[in-house]
Design a protein around this nucleic acid. Structure first.
Length: 568
RNA sequence: GUGCUUGUAGCUCAGCUGGAUAGAGUGUCACUCUCCGAAGGUGAAGGUCGUGGGUUCGAAUCCCACCAAGCACACCA
């Protein structure tokens, strides 16, 4: 990376300046204390480093420090402004960026060496009691993008969906299906109207098709009592199948679906309670067993076994996380909705109590999604207003949904404006970026297509022959104009974007980057004609266009999981 | 009441471990198609960084208090 090169040069110069006693009271510089940044105003240069932080140790003014360091560098590439050292990259370095892109192709931006980890990424993890709502869409999109990103960065990533298929909710689902079946068979029956009673059912209409299917499978003409477990199993299987189908269509891949019910049946949950008992952190109170999670920073202790002898949801969750750790993962990353934040402390506490390092568990808490329809916020959660993820994707498409769900920092509430996401216009960032890619493809097509004048019908030969076109990657780019320089620097930035995004688990920075790159490219396009009489210049510019196309395509398809269309 | 998250331009959001004149997009207004896709580009206007203190040479950024919004505070899952 160009940044790393400059940082190393400057750090060397600081060491030299200290030896020459040019940095006042400073006797030692610990490497890594400074960072290279892009100046806010490009007139200052391509990169900058702020040395003001050394002022305290040196006890001299920042500009004097900067000058002392630049003196040691002995190059006119560097200039000083206040506490900043600014510098421009030379043409050779810029040209190398493009060569690197052509060499690496799909791997451009992948770091050479990282401490690779075996990561378990768990996300979505919904109840199989109904269709996904748009909130699930955010976790699905962000999770799959994060998985792509971490894999690309060099980690080994395993994606898992924890199915909450145990507990009382499943019985609710079964009983709700029964009502729908009896309705279908002509019985005059409905869900309770009393609000509290109604909470024991899922009155959404989505169970009607399932009821019809059930009637067909069981060949019923009138309702005969069916075992509740059969009803539950049928409904559950149907909901799970629907959810899996949707995930597939949404471009979200899971390596495994882990059943909570199977976890209970395997005896792992009971074993986990035993282990906790051995740790001495369990006590009895009011007939229930409590886990002393407050010893590990939780606000209060938690029930692990109820007075009626059954386990709580937490108990299974503890067992599940221990199971993940036993499967040998270095790191567990979970994406949870912010409404589950209370669980973080207790799950971490259990991990620690059972002798594992709680730092291995990273929980990304995501704020929820608000739907904006015609400029008005529609609150989710109220069942009657619920918009399902299915409906949303039908309305705006997979690409736009994935992009919009990923484009914001996870800890801000996301406003999803349906009307905006639907428009194929400049208001929509997805189309803006895809358009840039299509435009790059179009230029490359034109470079080897013969041109037909629409007025005269005269044909003129293609600007380049196929073999000339194939040699483009070997061409060295001539960053003669400023827009080209800026574009190349933006391409170079991709490497740091990938690094920061992967290390901080911040997916939205990729979305931002891709918009910025598209913007630089559109700007370049408008100021420079790519296909021209000057062949050397044309080849150089085509090489730049090709480099942009590669990076845009990599970011869109491989990381964001969004199509990079060649035509629109 | 307690905890977590958020408060930056009309709107939606960036702003990296404190540092250059607080940045984008969108909306508004003005330019811009003889030429590779105008689904584009260029420019202008628009901000007491929720409020008040504090730390610092220097604060949108760190600390404290307050105000406002969202979420969570089960022997539900």
């Amino acid at each position: 990376m160009i940044k790393d090169f400059f940082l190393a040069e400057i750090e060397k110069a600081i060491d030299k300046a200290i030896k020459a006693e040019k940095l006042g009271a400073m006797t030692e510089y610990v490497h890594g204390g400074l960072a290279i940044e892009r100046p806010k105003n490009p007139e200052f240069g391509d990169f900058a480093v702020n040395v003001s932080s050394l002022a305290r140790a040196a006890r001299i003014a920042p500009p004097a420090i900067a000058n002392a360091i630049v003196e040691q560098l002995g190059s006119n590439q560097y200039s000083v402004a206040g506490g900043f050292i600014n510098f421009k990259t030379n043409k050779v370095m810029l040209s190398e960026v493009a060569s690197e892109i052509f060499e690496e192709q799909k791997n451009y931006g992948k770091p050479q060496r990282i401490d690779a980890e075996k990561i378990m990424l768990e996300y979505v993890s919904a109840n199989p009691t109904g269709p996904f709502h748009i909130g699930h869409g955010r976790w699905a999109a962000m999770g799959s993008v994060l998985a792509n990103l971490l894999k690309f960065y060099g980690h080994e990533v395993y994606q898992e969906f924890y199915i909450n298929d145990a507990g009382s909710q499943i019985e609710k689902l079964g009983r709700s299906l029964e009502i729908r079946i009896r309705q279908e068979l002509g019985e005059c029956i409905d869900f309770p109207t009393d609000e509290i009673e109604r909470k024991n059912f899922y009155p959404g209409e989505y169970l009607i098709p399932t009821a019809k299917k059930f009637i067909e499978v069981y060949d019923m003409t009138t309702y005969k009592p069916v075992d509740l477990t059969d009803l539950c199993d049928f409904a559950k299987a149907e909901m799970e199948a629907q959810q899996k189908e949707l995930l597939k269509n949404f471009g979200v891949h899971f390596d495994n679906f882990y059943s909570e019910l199977a976890l209970h049946k395997s005896g792992r949950v009971d074993k986990c309670i035993e282990e906790l008992c051995k740790s001495g952190k369990i006590y009895d109170n009011d007939g229930a067993k409590w886990f002393k999670s407050s010893d590990y920073g939780d606000e209060q202790d938690r029930v692990i076994k109820k007075a009626d002898g059954s386990n709580t949801y937490l108990t299974a969750d503890i067992a599940y996380h221990i199971d993940k750790l036993e499967r040998g993962y270095d790191r567990l990353i979970n994406i949870w909705g912010a409404d589950h934040h209370g669980y973080v402390a207790r799950v971490k506490a259990s991990i620690e109590a059972l002798g594992y390092d709680p730092c291995k568990l990273e929980i990304l808490l995501g704020q929820l999604v608000n739907l904006v329809i015609n400029g008005e916020e529609v609150r989710m959660g109220k069942r009657k207003n619920m918009v399902t993820l299915d409906e949303l994707i039908d309305e705006v498409g997979v690409d736009a949904t994935r992009f919009w769900m990923s484009m914001r920092n996870i800890d801000t509430t996301l406003d999803f404006d349906i009307e905006l996401a639907k428009t194929n216009s400049d208001e929509n960032p997805v189309f803006y970026v895809q358009y840039a890619h299509a435009r790059a493809c179009s230029i490359l097509r034109n470079a080897i297509s013969e041109k037909i004048d629409t007025q005269t019908g005269k044909k003129s030969p293609a600007p380049l022959t196929q073999s000339e076109y194939d040699s483009i990657p070997k061409v060295s780019i001539l960053p003669t104009v400023d827009t080209a320089r800026q574009l190349i620097l933006k391409l170079e930035e991709y490497k740091s974007v990938i690094k920061n995004s992967a290390e901080q688990r911040q997916v939205y920075t990729i979305c931002r980057y891709v918009q910025e790159l598209a913007s630089e490219f559109h700007s370049f396009y408008n100021q420079n004609r790519v296909i021209s009489e000057d062949k050397e210049l044309m080849l150089s510019r085509l090489a730049l266009v090709m480099a942009v196309k590669i990076v845009l395509c990599n970011a869109l398809e491989d990381i964001l999981g969004i199509s990079a269309p060649e035509r629109m």
